[in-house]
Design a protein around this nucleic acid. Structure first.
Length: 484
RNA sequence: UCCUGAGUAGCUCAGUGGUAGAGCGGUCGGCUGUUAACCGAUUGGUCGUAGGUUCGAGUCCUACCUCAGGAGCCA
């Protein structure tokens, strides 16, 4: 599979007047453009990007989403419906049967001389997309039409390829894809606010004796939520199938209003048995590099577009990341570096506190100027499941920071010692009784194991240079916004 | 949620308390193997919403809404 690709049209409304649509499978614009030779007969279908009239014919730029490039159609005035063709507006859908021939003009090698042109669906002058550039903010308001733009068509072809590359990476390495549940009963995973899933009537909920809503009478007989992470569940599968990963949607009810947060996003969570923190960091870094390499070589047109119109530094940065090993630095060393730096920070650097965004940016953008993996954080600022180091002060957390985005990967070696894990839970105010099944993994044949979460959209932002997460999700869900 | 900024034509924006503007787009015509074509004409407005100050508000004040950038939370 390559960056784009659409299946041939096989289902056609029976009452449709277009005879062309009933013909054999159409050729995609992408395939037409890379044809090795002229073709006597070809059928192409798509949407009109723009049209220009010449003396005795009309130029139509046709795009079907299979490629960034358009296919030029020559519609001669001998076509019986030429007067209609001359009024074809941007956005209209057409089917064209004709001859694929070498172009007489510059700028494209092939063009289609139309012998029959069917107008499938008109678009009138209110069609909001112009052939000139639009701001991403405007296109965001027409999220249902923006995939027809060059920028968003490219983003979503790359999104497709990135998902494919993620599966390829893990499948080639013997990982098993596990579908962890979307609905979860864990309400204290420490990964943020949760969306409640309920069938209780909001107007007259069942009450307990003390007046609280009685969720024991809810659909699942308990409180249930949309998942904030498949990690706890996937650990169970790692402790059986050894190397596993999840790749699915994740939901956080945080009121985050930033360019890097959405309330519904996709996450990749590998989990590996018999794997310590070093092995974990190796895997995360190898994955990030693999994905960049894959997109770089399989979506060249799209990357070129992003480099031209989205982020001029994109290609240099991607190559730079590929050429160099990731920097690894412990939290303690990072704090020392930050304290020694002459840089003035808005927030003070101090051991024991979380690194601020500006601190992370300094490390990855100013100091090392490449991705940085920070590991061994103070236990106080990390969740209960991370493995306690021998120093008794730090846990085996690791974050991969990349320039321009910040944290793209967060992970750790998990605490595999039952007694230490129970103590961690108590320190975090959690009741081990609520995690019986999770503790069983340590009770029966426990093994050292590690894993991490890679934000799918953040990775996509990194490889495309697109700076707002809303622009790499088909229909973004953010606070106050779920229109489409 | 907090801080900062913005909201004027379909889009991008100008408009310094006194007649609502430009470029692009759209439409019509011309020209032309064109390439974000070109030339001419034309179309286009609840100035985010609601109040207030003023003889007079797009412009000043207040509240709210929306968007953007930054912060926190994190992926």
């Amino acid at each position: 599979m390559e960056c784009g690709g659409i299946p041939p049209l096989s289902l056609v409304p029976s009452d449709h007047p277009a005879t062309l649509l009933a013909m054999a499978a159409a050729t995609s614009v992408k395939d037409a453009l890379r044809s090795p030779e002229p073709r006597e007969s070809i059928l192409v279908q798509g949407w009109v990007r723009t049209r220009r009239d010449s003396k005795a014919f009309s130029f139509i730029e046709l795009n079907d989403g299979s490629s960034l490039k358009n296919l030029q159609i020559i519609a001669n005035d001998t076509l019986p419906n030429y007067s209609d063709v001359q009024h074809l507006a941007t956005g209209s859908s057409i089917a064209v049967r004709g001859r694929l021939a070498a172009s007489q003009g510059k700028g494209q090698s092939w063009e289609v001389i139309a012998e029959e042109l069917t107008i499938v669906g008109r678009a009138d002058e209110t069609y909001p997309l112009q052939k000139k550039g639009h701001t991403p903010e405007f296109l965001r308001e027409i999220a249902h039409l923006r995939p027809r733009s060059n920028l968003f068509g490219s983003v979503f072809r790359v999104r497709n390829r990135l998902a494919y590359a993620i599966h390829t990476f893990f499948q080639e390495r013997g990982f098993v894809y596990v579908h962890t549940p979307i609905i979860t009963g864990s309400d204290a995973e420490g990964a943020g606010e949760l969306f409640r899933v309920t069938t209780i009537d909001a107007k007259s909920p069942p009450r307990t004796a003390d007046g609280q809503i009685d969720y024991a009478q809810d659909f699942f007989g308990r409180s249930a939520y949309l998942t904030v992470s498949g990690q706890l569940q996937v650990e169970a599968f790692a402790c059986a199938l050894s190397k596993v990963y999840t790749f699915g949607p994740t939901f956080r009810a945080e009121n985050s209003n930033t360019s890097r947060h959405a309330n519904e996003f996709w996450m990749i969570e590998p989990e590996m048995a018999f794997c310590d923190l070093g092995c974990n960091m190796d895997t995360a870094e190898e994955l990030v590099k693999y994905l960049i390499t894959d997109i770089r070589s399989n979506c060249p047109d799209e990357i070129e577009l992003f480099g031209k119109f989205v982020d001029k530094e994109l290609m240099a940065r991607l190559d730079f990341v590929l050429d160099r090993p990731f920097q690894r630095i412990s939290y303690t060393e990072a704090v020392e570096l930050l304290l020694k730096s002459a840089q003035k920070f808005e927030f003070p650097v101090e051991y024991g506190a979380n690194l601020q965004s500006e601190h992370e940016r300094w490390l990855t953008e100013k100091h090392f100027r490449c991705p940085v993996t920070v590991f061994n954080y103070p236990k106080e600022i990390k969740p209960f499941y991370m493995r306690l180091n021998d120093d008794g002060k730090t846990v085996t957390a690791m974050d991969v920071l990349v320039p321009g985005i910040g944290e793209i990967v967060g992970g750790s070696q998990r605490e595999e010692r039952l007694d230490v894990l129970e103590a961690n839970m108590q320190r975090h105010g959690l009741d081990p009784a609520d995690y019986k099944w999770y503790l069983d993994l340590r009770r029966y044949g426990t093994v050292p194991h590690s894993g991490f979460g890679l934000g799918f959209e953040r990775m996509l932002m990194f490889v495309t240079g697109v700076s707002n997460i809303r622009d790499v999700i088909p229909f973004a869900r953010t606070p106050g916004s779920a229109e489409f």
